[in-house]
């Protein structure tokens, strides 16, 4: 649901990224209308943590990832990374700051320049920042390529289209690693890949996270993948955060009706489990004119008049489990609805 509020933000020295009241709006052509891609969300990520952001297309999850990188800058709100507010930076300092956060995109093929050599592509960040001599740079690149499972020799001789989708994604990962970033934002990094290859990339990210001491933000629409890789998950719907909790709690006790819908929509690879009838109809409304009150109210099976007028804020229903809903499925003081089966 559409929730604002900051109850879930943590006061810890380990906070690496803290995003507050992030708003991103885009004009719709010259109509004077605007797309409310992200409407005032807040979250934080601790050092070494993996935050999963999950939601359907158009929920603003990718826009959030890009707004952190200031590509483009958000309409309002603050993005404090390692003590610096990125929204206040511009020019050289901005260029410098960006190198500490890197991003991996969904389409592995479009992320790599088709006309450049793979080794060149991975070398580019080092050559932009002139880190070390040419030989040192090449040594770093080859080491990292080997690390992600790409033969440096072949990389030196080939263009991206000579690699498979999964391998291209590994190359993108290698490029994001050479500058030694503190955080990597993965925007749907496995959605375009075959299931068998998805697993390889997810495992690789887990390994690299440990070895390089990375902090990850993992954005995806597939809750099963997100649950596997994340420590904490934020569920987004139509530009707002509905629920934030540890990934285990989210799976065991989904409190927001939308989270429940997402969970039950995942096909279970087991024919003996009866296919659950999805409890919502239709698709998210347009972010140009989002509904008043809770943004999920138009599809929510439990929506009441209150949901249509008053916007819920995030509140804690059990330790470290926050939900923005007037009628959560578990915990909370409001009438509890039975889980829809």
């Amino acid at each position: 649901m559409a929730g604002t509020g900051k109850a879930h933000l943590r006061n810890s020295d380990d906070v690496l990224l803290r995003v507050e009241d992030l708003v991103v709006e885009f004009p719709v052509g010259r109509t004077g209308l605007k797309v409310n891609a992200v409407s005032g969300i807040s979250f934080d990520v601790l050092k070494g943590e993996t935050l999963g952001i999950v939601g359907e297309s158009g929920c603003g999850k990718s826009t959030t990832g890009r707004a952190i990188m200031q590509l483009p800058s958000p309409t309002s709100g603050s993005v404090i990374f390692d003590g610096t507010d990125l929204t206040a930076l511009s020019g050289e300092p901005m260029r410098e700051a960006r190198t500490k956060i890197q991003m991996i995109f969904q389409d592995p093929i479009s992320s790599l320049n088709p006309r450049r050599n793979v080794r060149d592509i991975v070398l580019e960040p080092l050559s932009i920042w002139n880190r070390g001599t040419k030989d040192e740079q090449l040594a770093t690149v080859d080491k990292i390529l080997e690390h992600v499972g790409i033969d440096p020799q072949r990389a030196a001789e080939s263009k991206p289209h000579q690699f498979s989708g999964g391998q291209c994604q590994r190359i993108s990962i290698a490029r994001s690693l050479v500058l030694n970033p503190q955080m990597i934002i993965c925007d749907e990094p496995v959605s375009a890949l075959d299931v068998s290859v998805q697993a390889q990339v997810v495992n690789l990210l887990e390994d690299l996270k440990k070895e390089f001491g990375l902090t990850l933000i993992f954005i995806a629409h597939d809750l099963a993948v997100v649950k596997n890789i994340s420590d904490r998950i934020a569920v987004m719907y139509l530009g707002k955060i509905c629920e934030v909790s540890s990934s285990e709690d989210l799976y065991r006790n989904p409190a927001h009706p939308y989270t429940d819908v997402l969970l039950s929509s995942i096909p279970v690879p087991d024919p003996t489990v009866a296919v659950k009838k999805v409890s919502v109809e239709g698709e998210p409304p347009s972010p140009v004119s989002p509904p008043a009150g809770c943004r999920f109210n138009t599809r929510c099976p439990n929506a009441s008049d209150r949901c249509r007028s008053e916007e819920p804020t995030l509140r804690e229903i059990e330790p470290s489990h926050f939900v923005a809903c007037h009628h959560p499925l578990t915990g909370g003081d409001a009438p509890v609805t039975v889980r829809n089966n």
């Binding site: 359907e56 629409h221 039950s264 929509s265 995942i266 096909p267 999805v278 109809e281 698709e283």
Partner: peptide, 8 residues
């Protein structure tokens, strides 16, 4: 398609 729409 999205997961919820996929199921539908």
């Amino acid at each position: 398609l999205d997961v919820t729409v996929q199921a539908q």
